[in-house]
């Protein structure tokens, strides 16, 4: 299920929104048992509380977070032992703040890089308390999404794919991938539950990295 290997740790930082300050965090190049335990013991109960609140407010189900069913333990079981898949997690204050899995078997669709290899982001999710759409409140920590996208880009470079990545965005996150990350929106994909497919070229990858260097 999860690798016994101790994950490589990259020191990163997340923005503590309430405290208006950066806090130390770690990017792990794995989803370890600790991350899955956090998901089960902390994410799920928090998610249910939020769903209950949405329901009591009369919010229609179609507006509930689409990732509410994701079972990260099953996701990890599904890719166990597969060399084509990689997982990442972000830990801050001894708690998992976001997780991602990637796949290197997919090919690019943008004309300029058609059929070239890329790193496909299978799943990316932030902890419930880091999601404005669920709490209708400012997130506890922000920045995990960008760090995970950077990790996917770096994985792509290491694989020789020059930073090319692709993903299907959840509807609430289209704005992030189109406008903040700067990926190309290839529109709704009927083969993928009509989610919008976004792809990044090597040039867009460099622009994304450069964006964080500008003060």
């Amino acid at each position: 299920m999860t690798s016994d290997r101790k994950p490589d740790v990259t020191p990163v930082g997340l923005f503590d929104v309430a405290g208006n300050r950066m806090v130390d965090a770690e990017l792990w190049d794995a989803i370890a048992e600790k991350n899955l335990a956090d998901w089960e013991a902390e994410w799920i109960p928090e998610l249910f509380k939020l769903l209950q609140a949405l329901n009591r407010k009369g919010v229609e189900r179609r507006f509930w977070p689409q990732s509410r069913h994701w079972d990260w333990r099953d996701k990890m079981k599904a890719i166990e032992g597969r060399l084509a898949n990689q997982s990442f997690s972000i830990v801050c204050q001894d708690m998992t703040q976001a997780m991602m899995t990637t796949d290197v078997t997919k090919r690019a669709q943008i004309a300029s890089q058609k059929n070239d290899h890329l790193v496909y982001v299978d799943f990316l999710e932030a902890a419930p308390w880091n999601r404005r759409e669920m709490t209708q409140m400012p997130p506890r920590f922000s920045g995990a999404g960008s760090i995970l996208i950077l990790a996917a880009i770096e994985q792509s470079k290491m694989e020789g794919f020059r930073g090319r990545i692709g993903l299907h965005s959840l509807p609430q996150a289209n704005d992030f991938y189109a406008n903040k990350v700067g990926m190309t929106d290839l529109g709704q994909d009927a083969a993928y539950q009509n989610l919008r497919y976004f792809e990044m070229t090597p040039e867009q990858a460099e622009a994304f990295i450069e964006k964080g260097r500008k003060k």
Partner: peptide
């Protein structure tokens, strides 16, 4: 720099 621009958006990706 990236966290400050991410604070008001969602980031989830993947098949539902």
């Amino acid at each position: 720099a990236m966290a400050r621009q991410e604070a008001d958006v969602e980031v989830g990706a993947g098949l539902i």
